[in-house]
Each structure stands twice: as structure tokens, then as C-alpha cells.
Simulated assay, not measured.
Amino acid sequence: MSAVRVHIEGVGLYGPGLQGWDDAAPRLRGEQPFELAALALPAPEALPPAERRRVGLALKLALATGFDAVRHAQRDPASLPTVFSSTGSDCDNCHQILTTLASDDRAVSPTRFHNSVHNMPAGYWSIATGCMAASTSLCAFDATFAAGLIEAATQARCARRATLLVAFDTSYPEPLYALRPIAHALGVGLVITPERTERTLATLDLRWSRAPATPLDDAALEALRVGVPAVRSLPLLQALARREARQLVIDHLGDLQLAVAVQP
């Protein structure tokens, strides 16, 4: 594809030892050490109490990440079209359903069933924010983040509207973990605009590439990058945190990668 130019207004990030963008940015800049720590997420207060009781880790992660990005962009979440990109969505819920189906009592609860669909976060986001704008849900194996970024950038450009991307992954319990090992739960949010605004953090030019993906110098962050599909975005997030111009490559599928030119 020819280069697609979009702009970033807000960033959200939650993961092990990364508790929101304000906490994560100095660690990505190298000003504070990064260490793996238990994931701590804010309660999903935007949901009604009845809905709040039904949700699991995947939805809490997606909501926290999305609200973090929207807050930094100073945008009304009800006004933004959304793209949710995740390899497995609610992996714990999938495990519980399969466990039930393998037991003598194979009755699956309605709550587990409706939380099993891949666009579950999009539905809860609309309940939490009152958003009536269009929403797209994707999965693309290890290309989860790149696919989401391409989709959100395309929508922002075509519709001439700011668009929210939320890419997130959680881990399957065993025995599925052995087949699809995702090391940690982590979510990334970006508010993407078709034009520069007074709140623009950086401009991105996106194009296809055959070059290898860009690694990180920090060993702990690099292990996180290769261990979680949504965090193949870490080189981009590091460039945004450092406010630096950079040419980088993000994993896509096979030998086709996504090249990103970052201009703060």
C-alpha cells in the first residue's frame, strides 16, 4: 500500500508493571526501571452494577485501556468509532466454557455464552459510554496490533473522524496455554485522527515492508514484546513516550510487516 498518514492524540497502556500511560511512559523512556508486577486495573465503574458483576479480566483490561487513551486525548468516548483487536478476547471465559462442555453437566450459563463472542468488549464499551458510533472487532493471531492499527487508520481517514483503537490480549489457562502461550495480559489504546490537532502527539506514516520487526534494547521489555501480540506495538509506544522521530517495523503476518515512520 502507499503510505497512509494519521495522527495520534492519546495513548493508553495497561500491563504487568505498566499501570496506565502516565506510569508507563517514563519506564519506556528509560527514566524509571521496568519490572514485571501484578496487573492492577481500575474497577469498571462506568458499567451499571449488574453488568459490572458479569465481566472478567479481558473486559476490565479493554475498558481501562480505552478510557486511558480517551482521557489523554481529552475526547468524549461517546463520539468515537472504535476498533477492538484481540487474539483471543476473554480467554478465561473460553476455558470455563470448554471445561463445562467436557464435564457431565454441559449446561453453559447465559452470561458465559454472551461473554464468549469476540465483539463482547465492543458491546460493553457502548453500554459504558453510550457510544452509538460504528465498531469493528478483529483478530489476526500475532498480527493483532498491526491489523488493528491498519483498520483504525483506514477508518479515521475514510470517515474523517477520530477513531479509538484498543488492542488487548489475556492468557489462556492450561491446557490451552500450552498451544497458545501468551505470557501476560496487556492492553494498548490509541486515539487516531485524520488531521493534526492542538493535542497531536505524533504523526504516523504507515506502509508495508519486508524488513524484520524492530526489537527493543531493554531485555525485559523485549520479552514482553515477543510474548504478547498486542504489545508488538512497544517500539511505537516507546517512540511516542520519548517524543522522538523514528523509523520502525511492527510484526504482521509471514514476511509482510508494517513499517511506521513516527514524527513527533
Rank of each mutant, 00 (worst) to 15 (best):
Phe84Thr: 06
Ala133Asp: 13
Ala147Phe: 12
Ser233Ala: 15
Val249Lys: 07
Asp68Thr: 12
Pro173Glu: 02
Ala128Glu: 11
Thr203His: 05
Ala178Asn: 06
Gly30Thr: 11
Leu224Gly: 03
Glu244Val: 14
Gln96Asn: 09
Gly123Met: 10
Leu248Trp: 05
Leu47Trp: 14
Thr111Arg: 04
Leu165Cys: 04
Ala220Leu: 15
Ser209Phe: 01
Val260His: 04
Leu28Glu: 02
Gln263Ile: 07
His7Tyr: 14
Leu18His: 07
Gln263Gly: 12
Leu36Asp: 03
Phe168Ile: 04
Val70Ile: 12
Leu237Ala: 08
Thr193Arg: 06
Ala24Tyr: 04
Asn93Phe: 08
Gly88Glu: 00
Leu258Phe: 03
Tyr172Thr: 06
Thr129Arg: 14
Thr203Cys: 08
Arg106Tyr: 01
Ala102Gln: 15
Gly123Val: 13
Glu45Phe: 12
Leu216Glu: 00
Arg161Glu: 13
Asp90Gly: 04
Leu216Ile: 01
Leu221Glu: 10
Leu258His: 05
Pro215His: 02
Val6Lys: 09
Thr136Pro: 10
Ala213Cys: 07
Arg106Cys: 05
Trp125Ser: 08
Ala38Asn: 09
Arg157Glu: 04
Asp218Thr: 06
Leu206Asp: 05
Ala178Gln: 13
Leu18Asn: 05
Asp104Thr: 15
Ala147Thr: 15
Asp92Gln: 15
Thr111Asn: 11
Pro194Leu: 12
Val117Tyr: 11
Ala69Val: 05
Ala202Cys: 02
Asp105Cys: 05
Gly254Phe: 09
Leu221Met: 10
Asp92Cys: 04
Arg242Asp: 03
Ala58Val: 07
Ser209Lys: 00
Leu63Val: 12
Pro175His: 10
Ser109Cys: 09
Pro49Gln: 09
Trp21Ala: 10
Phe168His: 10
Asp76Arg: 10
Leu236Met: 02
Thr154Ser: 15
Leu47Cys: 10
Gly88Ile: 02
His184Thr: 03
Leu253Pro: 01
Gln19Lys: 05
Ala143Ser: 13
Ala58Lys: 14
Ala159Pro: 01
Pro212Asp: 00
Thr163Pro: 09
Arg196Asp: 02
Leu248Gly: 01
Gly12Phe: 08
His72Val: 01
Leu256Arg: 15
Ile127Gly: 07
Gly148Cys: 09
Glu174Phe: 00
Pro264Phe: 07
Ile192Gln: 01
His118Arg: 11
Pro77Met: 10
Val226Trp: 09
Ala50Val: 14
Glu35Trp: 07
Ala241Thr: 09
Leu186Ile: 13
His7Gln: 01
Leu101Gly: 07
Ala259His: 10
Ala245Asp: 07
Leu36Cys: 02
Ala146Glu: 11
Pro49Gly: 06
Thr203Tyr: 04
Leu216Asn: 01
Ser89Arg: 07
Leu39Ile: 08
Phe113His: 11
Asp68Tyr: 11
Leu57Asp: 04
Ala64Ser: 09
Val70Thr: 09
Tyr124Leu: 13
Ala140Thr: 10
Leu80Asp: 12
Leu41Pro: 03
Gly227Gln: 00
Arg246Thr: 00
Val108Ala: 07
Trp208His: 14
Arg246Asn: 00
Val166Lys: 02
Phe34Lys: 10
Ala241Arg: 06
Thr87Tyr: 11
Leu61Pro: 03
Glu244Leu: 03
Gly148Thr: 14
Tyr172His: 14
Ala50Tyr: 11
Gly12Thr: 04
Ala38His: 13
Leu179Gln: 14
Cys91Tyr: 08
Arg54Trp: 12
Asp169His: 03
Pro44Met: 05
Cys131Gly: 13
Pro212Tyr: 03
Gly130Phe: 11
